[in-house]
């Protein structure tokens, strides 16, 4: 690891005041410490926010407000989440290991970096790690890479599970900017596709700190998270689906489908949700949804398998959710 100055912030104001260019905030550290060891991230200053007390899950009207420092374990085990937002519990439980979930936080998980091997390998060019250096994934070995939302500069996959569920649940990310002003941003659009600036991954301005995630009342009672991976546990998604549906009199009246393992950001296509809404469930309909979802996909050798896999997974999940 490169040397850095360590500060332990007592409150949000101090955290913001201590931040300067080249600083990072650290909470669980499960991703950041690893990347610092690899020298993929070389902050001058590390600001410890783990003791800011943002570790409660509070009732917020008919929804919940999840503190940014709530661990993945605590969030997955929360009785309210298990009862009314089971897709979120399931997504969290499908990710990482017991040890990592105990340390990883809600805010940190939203900001986890890609596991593209070229991003982690200092010997290869990577536009995300070193802007303008090129992309070794183009023409390289591909498997855990994106097929949706890619650009000529980056194929890196967003590796999240939790974020996929939050995307289907219309969560809102709440943060303070460096001046201490509170902001709220829908999870839709919070993560940015690479475009020409793969190093810019979210809408958070420099020095901003996620304080909480607001979870509105669920719009669907049929919730499923299904994840396909290379081994049965403790692996990133090849493809995953978070489905939140509601049916009335045999018709789908609410559909929210979000996908992991496919996109440069947690993927959701409003046109797919709209296609399903108002319709009676059928395999023909589910196939149309898959057609629409995958129409803009740009598979390459190594990632082309994800398209038929996604179609089968989507059909199975929708079939189960509409039974």
């Amino acid at each position: 690891m490169k040397p850095f100055d360590y500060y332990r912030a007592a409150d949000l104001t101090e955290a913001a005041a201590t931040h300067q260019p080249g600083s990072v905030f650290i909470a669980g550290g499960t991703n950041l410490v690893d990347l610092m060891k690899l020298q993929v991230m070389t902050p001058d200053r590390v600001i410890d926010i783990a003791r800011l007390g943002l570790d409660r899950i509070e009732d917020d009207g008919d929804g919940l407000r999840i503190g940014a420092l709530v661990s993945n374990s605590d969030l997955a085990a929360d009785p309210r989440v298990r009862k009314r937002w089971p897709v979120l519990s399931r997504a969290l439980l499908a990710g990482a290991s017991g040890q990592l979930r105990n340390k990883a936080t809600t805010g940190g998980n939203l900001l986890q970096r890609t596991r593209c091997p070229y991003f982690q390998d200092l010997a290869t060019p990577c536009n995300k790690r070193t802007p303008g250096s090129g992309c070794a994934a183009m023409g390289g070995e591909l498997r855990n890479h994106a097929v949706l939302g890619t650009s000529a500069h980056c194929l890196a996959l967003n590796p999240g599970d939790m974020a996929v569920a939050l995307r289907a649940l219309d969560a809102v990310v709440e943060f303070r900017d460096a001046q201490g002003i509170a902001h709220a941003h829908p999870i839709a659009g919070f993560h940015l596709p690479p475009g020409t600036t793969p190093d810019v991954e979210t809408v958070l301005p420099p020095g901003a700190l996620i304080t909480s995630v607001a979870l509105p009342a669920p719009k669907g009672d049929r919730q499923i998270y299904r994840k396909v991976r290379d081994r049965a546990s403790y692996a990133f998604a090849l493809v995953s689906v978070a489905a939140v549906l509601r049916l009335e009199r045999g018709r789908i009246v609410h559909a929210a489908l979000a996908f992991g393992g496919l996109g440069t950001v947690p993927w959701r296509d409003p046109a797919v949700d709209a296609l399903l809404t108002g319709e009676a469930p059928s395999m023909v309909l589910f196939d149309k949804a898959a057609d629409l979802l995958l129409h803009p996909a740009q598979p390459r050798e190594g990632t082309a398998f994800k398209l038929p896999l996604t179609r089968r997974l989507l059909r199975a999940v929708l079939e189960e959710a509409t039974q």
Binding site: A50, Q99, L100, N102
Partner: peptide, 12 residues
């Protein structure tokens, strides 16, 4: 609680 000690900074 169980954690991975390799990913934890001791000062934290």
């Amino acid at each position: 609680r169980r954690i991975n000690a390799c990913l934890a900074l001791a000062v934290m």
